[in-house]
Amino acid sequence: MEIGIIGLGAMGREIARNLGAAGHTVTAWNRSGGQVEGVHMVETPAQALQADVALTMLSDDAAIRSVLLDANLLSQVRPGLVHVVASTISVAFAEELTTSHRAAGIDYAAAPVLGRPDVAAKGELNVLAAGAPTVLEKVRPVLEIISKRIWYMGEEPPTAHAAKIACNMMITMAIEAMAEAVVLTEANGLARERFFDLILNTLFGSRSYQVYSTNIINDRYEPGFKAVLGLKDLRLAHAAAEQLGRNLPMLEAVRHQMTEAVNAGGGDRDWSVMADYTIRSVE
């Protein structure tokens, strides 16, 4: 299968590499250039859309709008292309993309992913897929290569993006919950590694707790997923709640804390640096 990829950030590089290693012909465009083994780099995003399936992995709404919509690339795709947006984008923009693809007669699916670059490298992402069943069946061979499991979110692409935003919101809530628990327990003489040994083996054993408790124990926040991107996703969650006319108090609390952590200089560190901000702000 011929596969195009637009955007080769930390996640996109690993996805492209795995697709190439699986024997597909992979063509990719990246704003900042670069090379990936087994991937043919092209000079324009339009060239990456001359494929059977194209995956967009750009960072946000603005980047996708600039690259795809403002440049009118939907009028330049290969006939029969299926376009898959794997980026984390707003629900409102996903609705706009659904409309624009329908008007252009292009099959469109959403497939945002759960997992960090190390998970992507193993081909073990969780893919949240939404779109018409016939469209998803066309792209299933591609998604199976990069995933541990494909989760069907429904026929409307915005649903998958709402689910991804909600998942990231919940991860930040878990990070903040661990940070506030450390504030209480360390002040009363319990080392954080002992406390986390307790919760990981009793109440909270999920991957998010495992990964981010390790960061908090070691007081090490090397970027896996940058805090500035985490803040972007919390803004998307806030916008989605506003669109519904709803106030989500826990969301607003973690959005405030992540904003403070980024403003304190943690924007390029892992988003679990929010825990460090919370812990240190009470010392």
Score class of each variant (00 low, 15 high):
H161F: 15
N72K: 12
A120V: 02
A261C: 08
V42Q: 06
V139D: 07
E186T: 14
S206Y: 03
I217C: 06
A130W: 03
K164P: 04
G80Y: 07
A62G: 15
V228H: 09
D61P: 07
G105F: 08
D268E: 15
H161A: 00
R78Y: 09
E283Y: 11
D233L: 03
L49N: 01
G230A: 10
I5W: 00
I146A: 06
G266P: 07
D52N: 13
D52K: 06
M170E: 11
G38C: 07
S213L: 10
H83C: 00
T44Y: 11
I216A: 04
G80F: 05
S213G: 10
E156A: 14
M170D: 09
E283M: 13
D52S: 10
F204R: 01
L203N: 12
M274I: 10
T159N: 12
G4M: 03
A261M: 09
V228Y: 04
S213I: 05
A10I: 04
I146G: 00
R194L: 14
P112R: 06
A28M: 00
R102D: 15
V135I: 13
T134W: 10
M170V: 13
G154H: 02
H256L: 12
G189S: 09
L231V: 06
N188H: 14
A187I: 07
L97W: 02
G105K: 10
Q50F: 11
A121E: 13
V273W: 05
A181G: 14
S208N: 11
I106Y: 07
S147Q: 03
G105T: 11
I89G: 01
L234Q: 05
V254Q: 04
V84L: 04
E180K: 11
D233A: 04
V85N: 02
H161C: 08
A28E: 01
A241G: 08
I5E: 04
E242R: 14
G9P: 08
F204L: 13
I171Q: 09
Y108E: 00
G80N: 10
E242I: 06
Q257V: 05
C167D: 12
E144F: 00
S32Q: 12
D197M: 08
S206P: 05
G123P: 02
T202Y: 08
L184R: 07
N168I: 01
Y221Q: 09
T134Q: 15
A187Y: 03
L114F: 12
P45L: 06
H238P: 00
G9D: 10
Q243P: 04
